[in-house]
């Protein structure tokens, strides 16, 4: 699943995913709150969860950091731990450092996203 409010980025992301036969976007959320709601709903209705979460940081309503906090609470309440990869246009070291403090965050990718980075994300989803 992908969490980002930038429609252009989503458009590009979709195009990149299309090149991989074995990859599929199960959900697109515009912000952290939409994503939490989706994850709760999916867990309750089908007990399923995405294999990987691609997360942007700068979003309205609930940003990436707040999502990570909320998601942490969700996991404590029994949600399956999905690996999170951060996809952001930030190049601020403080953001990298902060991301490292979250157990769920497995990798940090700066935009623009390359096919190589997508392959790495795929590997991460297979390991966890």
């Amino acid at each position: 699943m992908v969490i980002d409010d930038d429609s252009t980025f989503l458009f590009i992301f979709r195009k990149q995913i299309e090149k991989f036969d074995d990859l599929e976007i199960v959900n697109e959320s515009k912000n952290g709150l939409e994503a939490i709601n989706y994850l709760k709903k999916a867990m309750n209705e089908s007990g399923s969860s995405p294999d990987l979460i691609a997360l942007d940081l700068n979003m309205p309503v609930m940003d990436g950091w707040d999502f990570l906090d909320e998601y942490g609470k969700l996991c404590e309440n029994g949600a399956s731990k999905v690996p999170v990869c951060i996809l952001s246009s930030t190049i601020n070291q403080a953001d990298f450092d902060r991301a490292n403090t979250y157990e769920a965050v497995k990798s940090f990718f700066s935009k623009p996203l390359t096919s190589e980075q997508l392959k790495t994300m795929k590997k991460i989803s297979e390991i966890y």
């Binding site: 930038d6 190049i91 935009k111």
Partner: peptide, 13 residues
């Protein structure tokens, strides 16, 4: 950050 976001999109496009 806010300058980079549209630029990265342009590169992606």
């Amino acid at each position: 950050h806010n300058l980079r976001a549209p630029v990265t999109n342009l590169i992606g496009l």
